[in-house]
Amino acid sequence: MSTPSIVAIIPARGGSKGIPGKNIHPLAGKPLIVHTIEQALRSSRVTSTVVTTDDERIAATSRDAGAAVIVRPAVISGDTATSESALIHAVEIMQTQNGSLPDLLVFLQCTSPLRHPDDIDRAIETLLSSGADSLLSVSPSHRFLWTETEGEARSINYDFHHRPRRQDMQPQYAENGSIYVFRPQALLATSNRLSGKIALYKMDEDAAVDIDTPLDLKLAEILLQERHKEAQR
Rank of each mutant, 00 (worst) to 15 (best):
A81S: 11
A81D: 05
A81V: 01
A81E: 02
A81P: 03
T82Y: 06
T82L: 15
T82F: 08
T82A: 09
S83H: 08
S83G: 14
S83Y: 11
E84G: 07
E84H: 09
E84V: 14
E84W: 01
S85Q: 15
S85L: 14
L87K: 12
I88A: 08
I88H: 07
I88Y: 10
H89Q: 05
H89W: 12
A90K: 06
A90G: 03
V91E: 03
E92N: 14
E92T: 07
E92A: 01
E92Y: 01
E92V: 03
E92G: 02
I93M: 09
I93K: 05
M94G: 09
M94D: 15
M94H: 12
M94E: 14
M94R: 11
M94Y: 13
M94S: 12
Q95N: 15
T96Y: 15
T96S: 15
T96W: 15
Q97R: 12
Q97Y: 00
Q97E: 12
Q97C: 00
N98F: 08
N98D: 15
N98M: 10
N98H: 15
N98R: 14
N98G: 07
G99I: 09
G99M: 13
G99Y: 14
G99E: 11
G99T: 14
S100Y: 11
S100L: 13
L101N: 10
L101V: 07
P102A: 02
P102K: 06
P102I: 01
D103W: 08
D103L: 09
D103G: 13
D103K: 10
L104V: 03
L104N: 00
L104H: 05
L105D: 04
L105H: 05
L105A: 01
L105V: 14
L105I: 15
V106K: 00
F107D: 02
F107W: 09
F107A: 06
F107P: 06
F107G: 04
L108R: 04
L108F: 02
Q109C: 08
Q109E: 10
Q109T: 08
C110S: 02
C110H: 01
C110R: 03
T111M: 07
T111I: 07
T111H: 03
S112C: 04
S112N: 01
P113I: 04
L114C: 09
L114I: 13
L114E: 05
L114R: 06
L114N: 07
R115T: 14
R115G: 11
R115M: 15
H116R: 07
P117R: 10
P117C: 10
D118K: 06
D119N: 11
D119I: 00
I120H: 04
I120S: 02
I120C: 05
I120G: 01
D121I: 00
D121L: 02
D121T: 08
D121P: 04
D121A: 00
R122K: 12
A123D: 00
A123V: 01
I124D: 00
I124M: 03
I124T: 10
I124L: 07
I124Q: 07
I124N: 12
I124H: 07
E125I: 12
E125D: 13
E125T: 10
